[in-house]
Structures are given as C-alpha cells and as structure tokens.
Design a protein around this nucleic acid. Structure first.
Length: 473
DNA sequence: CTATGGCACGGATT
DNA sequence: AATCCGTGCCATAG
C-alpha cells in the first residue's frame, strides 16, 4: 500500500504533495521543528522514536547505521564535500528546559532568537537538570552587552549552592556562541575567546599577556606604553591590536556576525545555523564536512501499528483515520524530499564555493540561484525556497545567511575594500572605478559609491591615508 | 569645477 | 509578478 519510492515518481503526485514539499523546504530548522511537533501532537498515525544512535559515539541518528563522523573517510577527493543530515541532538533537552518557569513556552516561540534562549539551547545537552535554573538565572541577568555584572556569590547564595558550581555553569556558557558571553568584564570575555580561538588556529604569543596585563592600555590605544610594558616594539603592538580587534570582541552580545553591518536587523543576529560546515583536517585539500541539521532526533515515520489497525477502524472513525494516515505519510515523504534536496544542494554549493568557505569573502564565486537550479536540474523556485531564511556556520565559526552564497557583488566589494585599505592617498570614486576595471571588474563610478556605502567606508574626502578604515569603530 | 548622494529607470533575478 | 541591482542624470556640497 505504501512504498518507499524515492525520487520523483511518488504515487499520487497531488498538488497537496507539491505544495507541502515546497512549504517544508522554505522552513528553517526551528520552524520545521515546530511543524513536526504540532503534527506529532495531533496526528496519531505519526510516530517518533529516537532510539537510533550511532553505535560508536552515541550521536543520535536520522537513520540507522554508523554516523558520518565515525565512519572512516572514504571520500578523499579534494573538491568533494561530505554532506549529511544530522539530527538536532538538543531536541530533547530543549523540551525539558521548557518546564522551567523562567521561560514560558510562548516566550520561546515568540522570540526564538533572544540571547538567553539562544545560549541555553546550545548548552542544554551538557547541563544537568539541577544546573538548569542556575544557567537560566545567569543568562537572564546578562546586560545588553552579554556581560554578567552580578557577582557570582550572589547567584550562589540565591540558589544555595557552592560557588564552584556557578563557576562551572559559567564556564560552559562562556564557551557557547557568542563566545565569551557571561563573562564578568570585557577582559574575561577576550580571554575566553582567545582560548577558544587558540584551539583551532595559531594566535600571537603575546596576545594573552597583553589582554591580561595591558587591558586598560589596550582599550585606550596607548600602544607606546603597552609596548614598553610588554617589552616589544610598537609595531608588534599594532599588529597585536589589529589581531585582537579583528578576531575578538569585548562585548559578546554586540557580535558582528557574518558581515552584518550597521545593525541590520539587530534582532536577527542570533540565528541558529541550519547547516554547519567544518573541515575534516587542517590540510589544504581537506574535505569539507557539511552537516545539515535536522530538527528531530531519531526517526519519524508512519506508525505501522496504526496502518494495520486502519482496516478494523470503527465505521464512524474510518474517514478521519484514513486522512490521518494520508497526512502522516505525506509529511514523512515531504521531509525525506526536503532532506534529499538540501543534501544535493549543499553538495553542489560546497563544491562551487569551496574557496569562499575556506578562505573568505574574496573567493566567493558569483552564481545565481537560477544557475544552481540548472545544475541540480530542479526548478529555480525550489532553490530559492531552500536557500531563503537559512543560516550556515562556516569553519571559522562565523554564521552567515545562506543567501550570501549568491551575493553577486561580494567579490568586487572585498576587492574594493582591499584597494582602499592599501591606498596611499584617498582615491575618488572615479579613480577607484578605473582601478577595478583594470582588475577586470567592469563597474560604473556610481556603483563604486554604492559599494562603498554598503561596506561602511567614508567618501575620499573624509578618509585618512594609511589609517585603517574599518566600519566598526 | 569635481566629487557624491538621491531618484528613478530598465534589465536581470527570484 | 515582484524585487533587486547597476547605472545614468541631476542637484548639491565643498
């Protein structure tokens, strides 16, 4: 009666089916989670169990078998990416947290992107249920910069627990995104960020020292004194300061993630990614590991018992049972379809934008959704839907919107920025336009002006030669 | 007179 | 069909 047909040839290729597939594709992880939850609650034909776990690492799986992390890498071609669906392991923890009265369910649903919730969701799996109220308390006490101004001892007293436990929880919080959140002061935030950063890349040796001992000098930009204090040259201090301002952020909640400039939609800063891309190792040819987060842990399927029972349904219920069954199998199929599409999409996208993912903005290959649709042999609107409203976490831990993969002018804008950063004398827009044309980017003078504005760079008249013109100062 | 920002138009993209 | 983006023209500031 029901078959596991995969791709296109689904039995009644009804409009309902099409409509639902499209709708699901459009949803991001959080929205899909809500959808599934609602469906589970109302539809007895749908069954969810989360017993599928990877035998090696215990990671929950969307389908039985070994998880991608534990399976040996069989895919070593350099331009290939490993793409797979991974369930949202926080799922169950997220549920449990709802029971805390600190957060009513409505609040969570209304503002899924507020800071406390965002952090709590990340750390929930590592948190014992006793520590949850602590975490909630701490997170709600944060000021708007993401710093914790309340003395630890106060929190400890309030909950009648030893201060060490509070410290443990804080430690956990600090290491969640945005890294350093929950620190007592900017200095501590910087140190935490530095520590986390040092796990994945090399950091200047003196950075820690500079923050630890010369924090006030650093923030006053008193580089001469700082150089003296640390016993290094001013030039080195300059480079240190640049490194710090490029990579660290004393006010974690003011995170400028991705390249979101001038507070574009401040409320959308905290997005949980729908896709996480990491590199498998540190060699330049490393395969990319693309993990597509799925909002349900375990397996979602039509309940086989329900299907059997349907033949013995009481006459008055037969209709509604049948429609439940129909609806459930539709949902499952659509989700399969959604996953399938996402995997194929990311596979191609990761291959095309490999350099961008690894090396940064300058290497973004301009590509349109339509071209990608061509490549995948799907309708362009499918790609549009799949891409819109989703976020990706890159190997450098930045979270960007998937839309950015299709930014036609990003490459030019970064070149422009470079040009201006390295200019000796401020160049007018016309001059800049010429330079860009020389480099093979045909742009009009007027366009340069627009790009400048986008990048937050001041007009030539207000720029100073030699000084870095970063937008966030 | 030159450098820029505003408005609006047309073609490409979604 | 709706939206976005690059560009030209013109007004304004310096």
């Amino acid at each position: 009666m029901i078959l596991q047909t995969h791709t296109t040839s689904l039995r009644p290729l009804t409009t309902a089916h099409l409509a639902q597939t499209m709708t699901l594709l459009e949803l991001n992880g959080e929205q899909l989670r809500q959808k599934i939850e609602a469906e589970l609650a109302s539809n007895p034909a749908l069954e969810h169990f989360d017993e599928a776990r990877c035998p090696t690492c215990g990671r929950a799986l969307g389908s039985p078998g070994a998880c991608m992390f534990c399976r040996p890498a069989q895919n070593t071609q350099s331009d290939q990416a490993i793409v797979f669906i991974s369930p949202y392991t926080e799922y169950s923890a997220y549920q449990a947290v709802d029971e805390d009265d600190d957060y009513s369910t409505e609040e969570w649903n209304a503002q899924p992107e507020d800071l406390p919730g965002f952090v709590l969701r990340q750390i929930a799996p590592d948190l014992s249920s006793d520590d949850r109220p602590l975490a909630a308390h701490i997170l709600t006490s944060l000021d708007e910069d993401g710093l914790l101004r309340t003395p630890l001892i106060e929190i400890a007293h309030y909950h009648h627990v030893p201060i060490s436990r509070v410290e443990n929880v804080i430690h956990l919080i600090q290491r969640a995104e945005p890294i350093g959140v929950g620190s007592a002061n900017p200095q501590q935030a910087l140190l935490t960020q530095l520590e986390v950063l040092s796990e994945t890349q090399a950091v200047p040796r003196m950075a820690r020292c500079a923050i630890l001992e010369g924090m006030d000098l650093l923030s006053r930009r008193a580089y001469n004194e700082l150089a003296h204090l640390l016993g290094i040259t001013v030039l080195e201090v300059q480079r240190l300061a640049n490194f710090i301002s490029d990579n660290l952020n004393p006010y974690p909640a003011r995170a400028h993630w991705g390249d979101i400039h001038q507070g574009v939609e401040a409320s959308r800063l905290y997005i949980s990614p729908d896709v996480i891309i990491t590199r498998q190792n540190d060699t330049p040819q490393t395969p990319l590991v693309v993990e597509i987060l799925s909002p349900y842990a375990g397996i979602l399927r039509v309940n086989p018992l329900f299907r059997e029972a349907i033949s013995q349904a009481p006459a008055d219920k037969a209709d509604s049972w049948a429609s439940h069954l129909e609806q459930a199998s539709l949902l499952v199929k659509c989700i399969q379809q959604r996953n399938h599409t996402m995997v194929r999409l990311m596979q191609v996208l990761a291959k095309i934008q490999r350099l961008f993912i690894l090396e940064g903005d300058a290497y973004l290959v301009p590509i349109t959704r339509a071209q990608l649709a061509e490549e995948l042999d799907v309708h362009e609107s499918t790609v549009s839907r799949a891409v819109s409203g989703k976020a990706v976490q890159l190997p450098n831990r930045r979270i960007i919107l998937l839309d950015k993969f299709f930014d036609r002018s990003l490459q030019i804008r970064t070149t422009l920025r470079e040009l201006i950063d390295n200019e000796v004398r401020p160049m007018s827009d016309t001059e800049l336009a010429n330079k860009l044309i020389q480099r093979g980017y045909p742009v009009a003078r007027r366009t340069v002006a627009k790009y400048r504005a986008m990048e937050g760079i001041l007009p030539a008249r207000f720029r100073n030669p030699g000084v870095k013109n970063s937008p966030n100062e």
